[in-house]
Design a protein around this nucleic acid. Structure first.
Lengths: 122, 122
DNA sequence: CAATAGATTAGAATTGTTCTAAGAACGGAA
DNA sequence: TTCCGTTCTTAGAACAATTCTAATCTATTG
């Protein structure tokens, strides 16, 4: 599945990968691309985000029922989720150490371990 | 906020807490309660699950965009998520050890650390 | 027993996401 | 190049999960 460099995809890729690490929702990226003067439907933003994710360019992080983000940082790392603000923050520095992940049920293998540290106004 | 023992709530609590640990979605619990002969709307199931969660009787686990489960096991534990089947499984035995959780941003405190081990057919 | 305040329920509305069908781009053959 | 079959792309429409709100019900108080 070679992705063609269409107008829509180029615009989205530009916004996503121009600067450093970003966390976007489909909605927020759609706003951005629209404000930048491109006509791209929200459905296309979803399609593109999923294609980029499948291609290994993005990582999807699900934080709440009906709220997911796409992260341009695809390295092995974890997140703070600040529910009050709906904000997702990369955990800086060394990743959290996770020890003793048990063997998964027969016939299955571990694909990924997601860690979300939920934080609150103190 | 004292929860009244209404017909709907009693029926749902019965199903939830009669047997051991359970993972239910709003939908699946609604099916169950309906098949058990009670008339409860799906919205009420949602309301009730959230109230129970707030009361500390349940824990909500979000696994996918638009897919969340409520877990009657409120102890400190983690989950396997078997995406192929959409199935959530408690990690048995000792919990995964998580070390080196960094201090959260100023003015915030850690509320909870969610760990989801995503597994796949090998 | 009436009046009031608060809690409850579920239909309707909203939101987030996915599907599908129409159209566009590509590659090969003539 | 032009035609044609195939594959890819897009976005409107459909869908699904969740939340909101207003009508109703229950408890409490005077």
């Amino acid at each position: 599945m070679g992705l063609r460099p269409t107008r829509q995809r180029v615009a989205l890729a530009g916004l996503l990968f121009r600067q450093g690490d970003r966390h976007v929702s489909a909605e927020s990226l759609h706003d951005e691309v629209t404000k930048a003067g491109f006509e791209v439907s929200l459905a296309t933003v979803y399609n593109t985000l999923h294609q980029f994710t499948e291609a290994g360019l993005l990582q999807q992080v699900v934080v709440d029922a009906g709220r997911s983000y796409f992260d341009t940082n695809i390295g092995d790392h974890q997140h703070f989720y600040y529910a009050d603000e709906g904000e997702l923050i990369d955990i800086p520095g060394a990743a959290i150490a996770i020890a003793g992940v048990p063997t998964p049920p027969k016939g299955t293998a571990v694909e990924r371990v997601d860690v979300i540290v939920r934080i609150k106004r103190a």
